[in-house]
Amino acid sequence: MVIDVFLALGLVVLAWQALIGGSLFRGIVMFIVFGMVLTLAWAWLGSPDLAMAEAAIGAGVTGALIMIAYWRLRRINAVEPRDPSPARSRLALVIAVLATGLVGAIGLAAVSALTGDATAARVMNETLPDTGLGNPITGVLIVFRNLDTLLEVAVVLAAYIAARAALGRESADLPLPPAPDTPLLTPLVVTLAPLTMVVAIYLLKAGSQYPGGAFQASALLAALGVLLVLTGRVGPAAAANWLTRAGLVIGTLVFCLVGLGMLVIGAPLLAIPGIWAVYLIEAAMMISIGLTLVLLFAGAPGLSGKRS
């Protein structure tokens, strides 16, 4: 009870700090802290999978993306609007209070209407052992509701294409902060790069039985990519080479091929033939999502070797 209240209150206070008043930079930092506390909240609520995803993607990658966008906006030297807009605050207050009441009412009504017979989840829990998986979330993502996951991988790919389209031809690659010149970076990269890859592959493998899986693993790879870009070990390229293109589409492609291949052998569309197919699809997804996130961070169509 005490910890529930503490975490819930902490979330609200941090959201307040991130959104209302203060400088934007402070707001971004508070937003990242908000993500970390939300990570604790997921863990406390009993979902280590969500905690890992929130820490790596919600707080980590999103925070890095917003930070680099902030840096680029400062560099462009665009006119910063003064926050907040006083002209709109009175009406906004009414709308926000109404929305708070609405969400609260829906939430409390849903909680009091809980009957405890979550049929779908129960059936899923019973069928899970047949798939050879131990982690129900991986089961839902890859086996039971894999059409959603396939579309999700496609959406991530679409985000990359849309971002390229939005940035246009003239700004093939966006500016990046200069790599810090310190002798510590080489040992950092040399140690962290292989370790992160090992942990990512471990997460992918463990995800079939324990918390973890392709998304968490891809976020780790994305974090490594961001580190390599920031330290100048990897630079932006004006065009994607064939390896980058292959990496971008491999997740969607492998997923589609396995799903369609099932039709050939007479099984239903997107049926999963065995645990090896789960690993195959997850590995392909991990590469695609991780690479896409790094490219979105670098703001470039492709990656090349060392940045000067």
């Binding site: 819930a8 307040w16 959104l19 707001g27 609007p81 009441g101 909680v111």
Partner: peptide
């Protein structure tokens, strides 16, 4: 119930800030 109240508060704060903020990052 505690989490529902927190979620309602977060949603309201977010919506309020979405309306009054002018900086797109915010």
């Amino acid at each position: 119930e505690i989490w529902m109240l927190a979620a309602a508060g977060l949603f309201g704060l977010g919506l309020y800030s979405l309306i009054i903020a002018r900086h797109l990052l915010r």
